[in-house]
Nucleic acid binder design. Structure first.
Lengths: 110, 110
DNA sequence: AATATTAATCGTAATATTGCAATTAATAGA
DNA sequence: TCTATTAATTGCAATATTACGATTAATATT
């Protein structure tokens, strides 16, 4: 086997998991932070900054783009990436909702 | 290759990624939500509720325990699981910090 | 047109994850 | 002690991820 049984879970549970999966690599965290830090968009400087090969960075960018967290627009020979605020805020909300539940249930039976 | 190059990234970036990885499966989201919902701790009812085999659930519980998100105490023949509030709140804070950055940088260049 | 620059894609190898059947470990109760 | 119950561990197969060299695609510059 090896394939996740998504049909056993709710839409929201799968959404949270997918979102978490997108953030489940330090390179992707670093990429997002770099895009956030430099107020203007970033191109291929990520390759210099992160120390990973160009195809590797490109693949991580592809994944982030696939779930909609970032957008890329071609500017001459380089590509400019930026956060998609709409999706970003959706994700932010989903995570906040998930962790908010903890406050209501301060169980400490073990 | 195939192994994540954690040495290229900051401690915090690796922490966020590890935390996200722990949440990157709908079964683990469902397990955590179930533990949160039933105010008292849960034992093996997760197997009945989730529709996955017992070894599979056990493995997911092991992963959640490995990163400290949950604790398990033996109660007779069954095992009682509960959230570790300390770690839970740490994670909550880390995520909140990560997503907070978005507000400061409302970039929309592309 | 020829060359340089930038980034995506392809192919491949190494490693990690997911899921479960079979087994084992450990306690509860007869 | 013997049996039932519950959960962890082991072993294995299928699939997914990570990383990068080689190549390709596309625009910019000469």
């Amino acid at each position: 086997m090896g394939a996740t049984k998504t049909d056993l879970f709710t839409k929201k549970q799968n959404e949270i998991a997918m979102m978490a999966k997108a953030l489940a690599h330090p390179a992707r965290i670093a990429i997002l932070q770099e895009i956030l830090k430099t107020n203007s968009c970033i191109c291929g400087s990520l390759v210099n900054d992160l120390g990973l090969a160009q195809p590797t960075i490109s693949q991580h960018l592809k994944e982030l783009k696939a779930i909609g967290l970032i957008r890329g627009t071609i500017e001459g020979t380089s590509v400019c990436y930026c956060i998609n605020p709409k999706v970003w805020n959706q994700y932010k909300q989903l995570f906040a909702d998930f962790f908010k539940e903890s406050i209501k249930n301060e169980n400490n039976c073990c």
